[in-house]
């Protein structure tokens, strides 16, 4: 029972992180119809830039209570700006090009971010420890399982951001514009929507969420590996799988997919074999795609001639 509960706590926290990252994939796919391979690198930069800001503000050894929101806003803002810049420079000229080209460009951006990050002048190759911005203590004990403040924080903050996004997409003018662009770009522009602007904003929002995930990741796991490390790519890849399983382009699906992947991975590791946890994720992915290619929550799109 202890193992079950402990795994539950870990899986929920990890699943929330996957969900947050998956949202970025799904948003971008919604408006641009391409897999933003550089998204996992935005997540990585979110984690590293949180670390950097913490150092600059002198909170490496002890942080005031307001440190977390400040760093969160700074990291989200930085990554949103970075993503908009990337979108303007690298993706915008390719609006009319085949999707594969945009994909290759995204790979190029990903390689660029990773390899710039390892430069001595940027983040360097040494792993770093993220200072704990919050007082990390055991909040309550449940059947022998100590639930830590960070775990609760990760789940709550991720949940709050998801709800915020949900509200924004379905309840605001901007959200309506995003959905319109996603549905039919041409018609949307005929309706007076500034498509380019909406795409840029969507990029920014998705990347801000990834940055939040990066900060939460850094807080929960504590150590940051160099930017070209496989850890980041693999995390991003699994988050992407989460988006696909949930039905890419579907906001709720991404969250559900993320939590599902988190549970699949952690419970598979705890009860079957921890070595094959990546295999479970990809096997389930292939299975889902074979049975329901549009994902669990996605709508099947009938191709028109």
């Amino acid at each position: 029972m202890t193992i079950f509960l402990q795994t539950f706590v870990n899986a929920l926290a990890l699943g929330s992180l996957y969900g947050l990252i998956a949202l970025g994939y799904t948003l971008v796919y919604g408006v641009l119809r391409f897999i933003n391979f550089a998204h996992s690198d935005i997540f990585m930069i979110g984690a590293w830039i949180s670390f950097t800001f913490t150092g600059w503000l002198g909170w490496s050894t002890g942080a005031p209570a307001y440190a977390l929101p400040v760093i969160l806003v700074l990291a989200m803002g930085f990554c949103a700006l970075l993503a908009v810049a990337i979108e303007q420079i690298a993706y915008k000229p390719l609006r009319k090009a085949p999707r594969l080209n945009v994909l290759i460009t995204a790979i190029g951006v990903s390689l660029f971010l990773q390899n710039t990050g390892v430069l001595k002048q940027v983040f360097g190759t040494q792993p770093q420890r993220m200072p704990s911005l919050v007082n990390d203590h055991v909040m309550f004990t449940l059947a022998g399982v100590g639930v830590q403040f960070v775990d609760v924080l990760v789940v709550l903050l991720a949940g709050a951001l998801m709800l915020l996004l949900q509200w924004m997409v379905f309840r605001t003018r901007l959200g309506r514009a995003m959905r319109a662009v996603s549905f039919d770009e041409r018609t949307a522009s005929l309706m007076g929507i500034n498509v380019n602007q909406v795409i840029s904003i969507t990029f920014g929002i998705g990347s801000a969420l990834a940055a939040a995930a990066g900060l939460l990741y850094a807080l929960k796991y504590g150590s940051l590996k160099q930017s070209a490390d496989a850890t980041w790519v693999l995390l991003g890849l699994k988050a992407f799988v989460a988006a696909v399983i949930g039905g890419i382009g579907n906001v709720r699906g991404a969250v559900a997919g993320g939590v599902l992947i988190g549970f699949l991975e952690m419970y598979g590791a705890a009860y079957l074999s921890p070595h094959l946890k990546d295999v479970y994720v990809f096997v389930v992915l292939i299975g889902v795609l074979l049975v329901k290619p549009s994902g669990l929550f996605g709508k099947a799109v009938v191709e028109k001639v």
């Binding site: 402990q6 870990n10 796991y221 496989a230 991975e265 952690m266 590791a269 705890a270 921890p274």
Partner: peptide, 13 residues
Amino acid sequence: YTAGDVDVAAQLG
């Protein structure tokens, strides 16, 4: 574990 693993909770359990 594998170097890319972020969570080794199961093994530690």
